[in-house]
Design a protein around this nucleic acid. Structure first.
Lengths: 116, 116
DNA sequence: CCAATACATCGACGTTTGTCAATATTCGTG
DNA sequence: CACGAATATTGACAAACGTCGATGTATTGG
């Protein structure tokens, strides 16, 4: 055992400085990371922007598949992730499924990011 | 041109038009997704908040390893991702590496999300 | 110099993710 | 009711990711 081992406080003083406010909890970090992860994909960002840019701010899968350049099953997969994460809603009319942005959802995540 | 202009996050901010007007290009979506992906992890979000909460808004790896509950090599790995993405800067003083938030980096990404 | 410290990098491993093809499900229509 | 169209779900597979232990690289102090 060395002298340094007996003086942890001095070691801390040499390098470490104290926390001024509490850091994010593991729980909150996990939840926020989950919300962000749903946005961390080029195809999903483009889907969000396509829905937002579409007439009446809604779009069905058939509108999105071709311009996105991915298979229909893949588009459905991404849309599901965006719905589950709370960024889109899904309304079925006939055989078509129409997707809309959830108002304020992106703002909410953006606000959380600012406060990190 | 400053160093900050070369950071990935600022690149994204510079070249992305608001999502409401037109669908995102594949290029911009890929860049923005890359910037977001760096945030899409609980450990990295906690690292950012720990650096922000620290005295003088800077922290070295030794400050972060124990409270984060991950190995030193893993912490270095995450810090590198955050530096590469433009959210943190790294300054070496002696054997210690001090990390600081890049002012406005998180705001920039948050602003892009809010514009949808 | 030599040893110790702080940090970065590398190699490996299990897990998650994005994509497609195939199949299932739901709904309108003849 | 049976068929076709729009969408969802499943299974498979390669690529990317998060984590660790071991090793490499500076830097300080004796």
């Amino acid at each position: 055992m060395t002298l340094a081992d007996l003086l942890p406080v001095n070691d801390v003083a040499a390098c470490c400085s104290p926390l001024t406010t509490a850091p994010m909890s593991v729980d909150n970090a996990t939840r926020l990371a989950g919300a962000i992860k749903a946005l961390a994909d080029p195809a999903r960002l483009r889907l969000l922007s396509m829905v937002a840019a579409h007439a009446d701010a809604e779009a069905c899968v058939c509108d999105l598949t071709e311009p996105l350049g991915l298979q229909q099953s893949t588009v459905s997969h991404h849309l599901r992730i965006l719905v589950d994460a709370g960024y889109l809603t899904r309304h079925k009319r006939g055989t078509w499924a129409y997707y809309r942005l959830v108002p304020g959802a992106l703002d909410s995540v953006a606000g959380l990011l600012r406060s990190v």
